Computed example of a mutant assay.
Amino acid sequence: MIYYPFSDYLKHHYGEKVYKLPIALPVTCPNRDGTRGTNGCTFCGEIGAGYENLPSSMTISEQIANNKAHIVPKYKAKKFISYLQNFTNTYMPIEKLVQCATEAVQDKDIVALYIATRPDCISEYYLSRLNAIKKQYNIDICIELGLQTVNYKSLKKINRGHSLAEFIDAVLQIKQYNMLTCAHIILDLPWDDMDDVIENAKIMSALKLDQVKLHALYIIKNTKMADDYLHDKIKLISLDDYKKRVITFLEYLSSDIVLQRLIGRAPAENTLFSNWHTGWWKIRDEIITEMEKNNLYQGKLCNYLNGPALKKFDPYN
Rank of each mutant, 00 (worst) to 15 (best):
L84A: 09
S57T: 12
V27R: 11
D33W: 09
V18Q: 04
V105M: 11
L239M: 07
I168F: 13
C29I: 01
H231C: 08
Q99D: 14
S123N: 15
Y152T: 15
F43W: 02
T35Y: 03
D169S: 14
T102C: 08
G40I: 10
E286S: 02
Q106W: 00
E62L: 12
N151T: 03
E103K: 13
W281V: 02
N39F: 04
T59S: 15
S128T: 09
Y304E: 06
Q148S: 07
Q106D: 06
E166T: 11
I198V: 15
K68F: 06
H12P: 04
M179R: 04
I64Q: 04
A77C: 12
I220G: 01
L209G: 00
R129N: 06
I168P: 07
D192C: 14
G48W: 07
W281S: 10
G48H: 09
Q173N: 08
T278R: 00
I47L: 15
A49N: 08
Y218Q: 05
D228S: 15
G307E: 08
I133C: 06
D120T: 08
F87R: 03
M225P: 03
K175D: 00
G48V: 11
R245W: 02
I257H: 02
V105F: 04
D227N: 15
Q85K: 09
V111M: 07
G279Q: 13
V111W: 00
N270L: 12
I23C: 01
P30Q: 03
P26D: 05
S254M: 10
T90E: 14
K17A: 04
V246Q: 01
D169Y: 14
V150W: 07
Y304D: 03
N31W: 00
T35P: 06
F43A: 15
V171G: 02
T223V: 09
S154P: 11
I186W: 03
